[in-house]
């Protein structure tokens, strides 16, 4: 048996990497991937906890999380395509019509 803590450390690491990616990377696609990483770390967490407690709920939530993430990515990509048609860039830094 792999101790739950290892999973948690893995998840936390992924989460931190993902969060850092969202905050630091400039390419929108990579930012989206980093978001995915964050949410996947949550999935790992859920599965690890569910497994540790022999509780199915963890897996169920994980499935929901995956599904919702998929929807989120779908929406994000859709918007990205629309943006690409208006402004031919994928760089976050160039999204500057709205100051802030």
């Amino acid at each position: 048996m792999i101790p739950t803590l290892w999973y948690l450390i893995l998840a936390a690491t992924l989460f931190v990497i993902g969060a850092a990616g969202v905050l630091l990377r400039r390419n929108v696609l990579i930012v989206l991937m980093s978001l995915e990483l964050m949410l996947n770390s949550v999935t790992i967490n859920l599965l690890a906890f569910g497994h540790a407690q022999q509780d199915l709920r963890g897996q169920i939530i994980a499935i929901f999380v995956i599904a919702i993430t998929a929807a989120e990515v779908a929406v994000a990509l859709g918007i990205l395509v629309a943006l690409l048609r208006n402004k031919h860039t994928l760089e976050v830094d160039e999204l500057t019509i709205l100051k802030g």
Binding site: V22, V28, L32, I79, L80, L95, L98
Partner: peptide
């Protein structure tokens, strides 16, 4: 742009 920022 707003939408993309909001999604992210």
């Amino acid at each position: 742009e707003a939408a993309l920022k909001y999604v992210i």
